[in-house]
Simulated assay, not measured.
Amino acid sequence: MNRMKREMEAARQETERFRKRLERLRQNRAMSQEKVKFKTQGKRVAKKLALERKETVVEFLCRDENSRLLPGKKYTVTKNKNKQQRRVLVKPLAELHISYNSEMERQRMLSYRQFVRYCPFYVTRPKASDRNTCACMDHENVKLLSEKLQQKGLLKTSSVSELLSAIVCNPDNMACMYRICAKCCYNEVEVSQPQTEETVVWSQWVRKPVTEEQRTFMNFVKETQNGTSSEMLELFNRKLDGLAKHHFNWLHQAKECRALKDSLKDDEIVVHVDFAENFGCKLNREVQAFHFGGNRRQATVHSCVAYSSDGVQSFATISTDF
């Protein structure tokens, strides 16, 4: 009887050990499945976040205030059979990277290296042949002065956006940029004081009256000016102060126009109309007097882009220029 009890107890203990071992195996298998599932979900989340970041960078760099679209039919780039119209950056990538991180939430912030990696292949730095013939006169004059001041070692940067941010409380605040804010309306850019009052030469776009054959008209020329470093600093601060309002209006209009295009209803449309420069009409065979004289006819191209909820449609009309 005692022997049978001992055998039954041993069998019961063996069964209990087997049950516990089987339970541990089930738990380990479940934990392994959970780890695989967690890793898979983590990879999916990371991949989705990387894709969202890339789309955000592409959308940011393709804004009209960050890059300009080249209008020529030949200005295209093809990569992996994907043909796109070229866009040229209007600011350095380092400056655009700072602007991107300043307006994005934390999870979409990027390092400079990753920001450059996400830059689309059709958004490129300007080449020598990419002439900008529609530059803003106010921005160009301030840019010419800031570059000269940086060259002389009086400024640390020539970026117009950074210089404007240095003299206002908030570059997104209308009162600050209109220079009516009580805290920052008298602020100026902090510069290193010039050691000597040597003569400095700089360039500026100016509007000058020109008289020809008893007829006076206004002409725009890039004029060379000279003066002391203090005079150039005074001119720079005055022009930068006047540029703040114009810069704010430009960015605000671009932002509102972009928001309007993204929120169009089915019965709404946005039409952007502009004109191109006049084109001279040429013949295959021309007499010399016609080619070098003032007899060549010209044509004006009016371009139009219509934005709707269904997509984008482009138009162009040609009219005779008299």
Results as ranks from 00 to 15, higher is better:
Glu95Leu: 00
Cys304Pro: 06
Tyr100Arg: 04
Asn170Cys: 08
Cys62Ser: 11
Cys181Ala: 06
Thr157Asn: 02
His246Pro: 00
Glu277Asn: 09
Gln151Trp: 09
Arg86Met: 10
Arg113Glu: 14
Gln193Gly: 08
Phe279Asn: 07
Ser159Val: 03
Ser203Lys: 14
Met8Asn: 10
Cys134Lys: 15
Lys222Gln: 08
Met218Phe: 12
Gln27His: 13
Cys119Pro: 01
Pro209Tyr: 09
Lys152Trp: 03
Leu49Tyr: 03
Val142Met: 07
Ser161Met: 12
Asn132Cys: 04
Arg68Glu: 02
Val142Asn: 02
Leu69Asn: 02
Asn284Gln: 14
Val123Lys: 05
His252Leu: 13
Ile167Glu: 07
Lys143Phe: 13
Leu144Tyr: 05
Gln41Asp: 04
Ile318Asp: 03
Arg12Ser: 12
Met31Trp: 08
Ala299Arg: 09
Asn28Met: 11
Asn82Met: 03
Lys156Trp: 06
Glu140Pro: 00
Lys91Glu: 12
Val77His: 04
Gln84Gly: 02
Arg207Pro: 00
Val116Ala: 03
Glu188Asn: 14
Ser67Met: 02
Ala182Arg: 13
Glu188Gln: 11
Thr224Met: 07
Ile98Arg: 01
Thr228Phe: 07
Met218Glu: 08
Asp266Lys: 06
Glu147Val: 09
Gly242Glu: 13
Val301Asn: 10
Glu231Cys: 01
Arg19Pro: 00
Glu7Tyr: 12
Met8Cys: 01
Thr317Trp: 11
Leu69Lys: 04
Leu49Trp: 01
Arg63Phe: 02
Trp202Met: 06
Ser161Thr: 14
Leu240Pro: 01
Tyr112His: 12
Lys255Gln: 14
Ile98Ser: 05
Lys20Asn: 10
Ala276Arg: 01
Asn101Pro: 03
Ser129Gly: 04
Asn141Gln: 00
Lys48Ile: 01
Arg113Tyr: 07
Cys134Gln: 12
Asp241Trp: 11
